[in-house]
Structure formats: structure tokens, C-alpha cells
Amino acid sequence: MIIIELFINFGPSPIMVEDPVTSIDPRTGELARFAGALAGAAGAWAVDELTAGAIVAADETTEQAGLTPRERLYRELIRLNRRRALAAPPKREDDAPLRRAEDFARRVERLPLEDKEALLLVALARFSYEEAARALDIAPRMFAERVMRARARLDCGQPVAPPRRPNYLRLVK
């Protein structure tokens, strides 16, 4: 009888209701890992801000043509991080050539932002070139160039192209 009553009275199960305090958006873990790799030097607070901000922005953004939800999420994270990087004071060492004996972690951290984004999208987030190029809104060929440039810098410690500071802002008259 108890079993039959269970069938009759069963509604949304109380044991399956999410605790608003402990429930974490399932996208958080993967995205926080990527944010940590991209902007870990800025501190844990910045990583958390980027992660949460990207999720909110991706949820609020209306459907973008040709983008999967995952690509949209990474696009928002990268956009927010570029904005953060522009606001952060520049480091003097950024343009110094990378030494071969330097720690690998430090060399990844010091990659030019665009190259680091490309390499991390492939190596860490395991995007295909096509997916990553869509997330960055660039041509796949240009994306491949960035990956090659990042690896060349990590490989030999020397820049293959003159280092430059990314400029995402345009002058508007």
C-alpha cells in the first residue's frame, strides 16, 4: 500500500530539489579551469569574476548565428578577460624575450594574450581549430597561425614576430 501511495502522491521529489546554497552551475568547473590558465596571475578573485561573468553574459546573450552554447561561453570569457587585461597596468617584462631555461609555467603565462588564448583553446579546452576560430570570431587559418606562434615561442623562447601589445579598441571619430 505504501508503494501504491507513493505512486499516487508523487510530485516533484523533495530529495531531488537543489539546495540553492550548494548547487553550482555545472559549467563552472571547466570554465574556471580555463579562466585560471588564461588569467591566473591576476588572482583567484579575478578568475571567479571572469567565470561567473561569462556564464551570466552567455545566458543573457541572444542566440548568435553559428555558435554552439559552449563556443558562446568561451567567447564571453575571452571577451571579458581582454577587457580586464586592457584595464590592468602593463608589466614591463612583457616585451622581454623569453629565456629557454625559464619555467614552462612562466613561459605560458607570458605568451601574448591572443596566442595564449589560441593555444589554451586547443590544448586545454580541446576545441577543434574550427570551433576555436568561431569562438574567437576569426578565420581558421588565422587561428592556426596563432597556435603556431604560441608553440614557437614556447619552443625556443624567442618571439617569431615582433612582440606587440594587443589593441582591441578602435578610435572612433
Binding site: 550548494t22 568547473g29 586545454l124
Partner: peptide, 30 residues
């Protein structure tokens, strides 16, 4: 380099407490 980058930044489950109700899979692509 790819492998070193993945090891340098371990999967989220290694450094974040998991929620009691909804758990993430252990795989990297969460």
C-alpha cells in the same frame, strides 16, 4: 606542451569542492 598545459591546470574537480546534489563527471570535458 599540450600535455604539460593540461597538467599545469588540473581539472576543476581537483581544486573545487563538489556540490552535494549535482556532481560533475570526473572527465575533463565537464
Amino acid at each position: 606542451q599540450n600535455e604539460a598545459i593540461r597538467r599545469l591546470f588540473p581539472p576543476a574537480s581537483a581544486f573545487r569542492p563538489q556540490p552535494a546534489v549535482r556532481t560533475l563527471p570526473p572527465a575533463e570535458d565537464a
